[in-house]
Design a protein around this nucleic acid. Sequence first.
DNA 1: GAAACAAAATGAACCGGTTCAACATATTAA
DNA 2: TTAATATGTTGAACCGGTTCATTTTGTTTC
Lengths: 331, 331
Amino acid sequence: MSTIRDVAKEAGLSTGTVSKALSAPKTVSPKNLAKVQIAIKKLNYKPNMLSQKFRNKQSKTIVVLVPDIANLFFAQVISGIEFIAQKKGYSVLLGDTRDDIDREQEYIKMVETRLADGIINLRPYIEGDSMLPNDGVVAVSAGGCENTPYPSVRIDNAGASKKVVNYLLSLGHTRIGVISGLANNPHTLDRMAGYKAALELAGIEFDPDLIYEGDFKYWSGMNAAEYFYQLEDKKPTAIFSMNDEMAISAMKGFLNHGLRIPEDISITGFDDRQVSRYLNPALTTVSQPAEKIGERSAELLLQLIEGKKPNQTEFVLPYDFVIRESTAPIK
Amino acid sequence: MSTIRDVAKEAGLSTGTVSKALSAPKTVSPKNLAKVQIAIKKLNYKPNMLSQKFRNKQSKTIVVLVPDIANLFFAQVISGIEFIAQKKGYSVLLGDTRDDIDREQEYIKMVETRLADGIINLRPYIEGDSMLPNDGVVAVSAGGCENTPYPSVRIDNAGASKKVVNYLLSLGHTRIGVISGLANNPHTLDRMAGYKAALELAGIEFDPDLIYEGDFKYWSGMNAAEYFYQLEDKKPTAIFSMNDEMAISAMKGFLNHGLRIPEDISITGFDDRQVSRYLNPALTTVSQPAEKIGERSAELLLQLIEGKKPNQTEFVLPYDFVIRESTAPIK
DNA sequence: GAAACAAAATGAACCGGTTCAACATATTAA
DNA sequence: TTAATATGTTGAACCGGTTCATTTTGTTTC
């Protein structure tokens, strides 16, 4: 494998000239530029970027910490991140932590050891259980929650939830079940706050029996449906699910018991997966601008890395509440 | 930021000793090992991995080329890749090409310029339209098709398709519509071959009117449903869709026209998305071991990178044909 | 043609690790 | 006790780019 010195020798020039021919061609005479190009072609020279990065002391790489890449919401956010990063000449290193704190630690160490210039964290901030923020590692939180103690890009989860529940209330529902995420999950907390706020505004008392704790995965929606079904006459007439996956499988669960949606029970989701509009019935849900969240957080991180002071370090992007077929007025 | 020389000075030792203390602690006397550890802690020393990689001439990084990371199948494959890579001390660089050949080129260049040691390509091989294989770039194809001219891990697409169509035939369907991917897509070709093979075996003539060309995305399933619906009495009684997304939206399309599934028309998918079992009706489909494909291809690539000769360079993994509710005997 | 200035080219030093031949010290064998 | 051997330590050289003070070459002016 040839080096810049080989090229210099072949072209009859110094390494400095060759280096400049590559990085700033205007500063080299046309005659020598041509010589360099010929030598490069002849030797099939490819600069060693590892050496370059080492010398320049910057990896031009960011790492994306994600709890589970096979979750479509995360995948879409990452798609947005990658788009911006590539455009700005950065690579993105994937850090699928699988909810393992040690793996998370590993990836954060990459920034400390110069393998990456910064980090975007898709795991929402949990006080006392987070490696970030961390002195000396630039980081931004994407798709997280309120009160994240470092730069972040997200939507107003509580506000969106309140809007959904208000809508269900406006349809006449008063017993509104909730399929939540794990109780200590920040998204659960924010969205639950919205639910409670809406109830309170309507003067309806909070009933803990109407809360089913899931984990944002499909199977827990099925379980939730079982739980609500056996409540019989105390059954809710509408369900507010904290993501689409659980809403989808809950619909299946109710359907299996012969309940019709939305005639017998209304259901709403959260996130607006691509599939949600093609369901039978199509799902009423909150549409998060996942790709936008990714793009904006990448832009923010790159600014931070390059030492520019952004005029804003907390972005709350607009969401969309889309009403489809899974909700109807109470009978 | 402190360097290994600072640590050496602080500990009163040579750089060589400090280096060994980190990479091979057993070869350093306990006394000096302790000195090194104290010095490291005192200076808060973190080795510069960029320097390390440069010196060792290996990036310990692989790049994953993916046409669209927001496609769940790809995301799952990547999840498997990441799992193995992390375990073996490799990082994975995400290369979302968005079907752009220039971006693809960019990423392949990373291997040539030492930024990565190898590449896993999730885009199926197309003759005359592929940057891989490429001399000096170790690569493996994951989830691709037959006749890939470099190491690959995949399922038997044609065989699986044949099995699906055979099943539909066994239910009495003889007019079986197809929702394909783009005509020149390798997956389309392989799966179409299976479809034709099954028809031929059953002595049924191939009817081009029963083929609708989609692009593997949701919206084209809707369009396919429209197309098949207006065929009226020449309508197929069963649909073989080349992926789940198009099958799902086609179901919605038929439902919108008042057709019942599977009573009026049977539908099958391909890939088995997580959501498919929770649909109404649940989708009959081929389950690809996406995560396994990722794991196996990562293992294969790492062997190749490390110069071991694998005893096999083409892996055809088993798939699963799962019969659910969207298929029924012909009326 | 010489002086003054600008533009281009040179090459040694540098980045921060790792490596290895040479050397120092500790252990075992005779 | 000495020689032979094993174990541990040293520090200069190296990887392949980039940088910049210095030198060389080219251009302009009088």
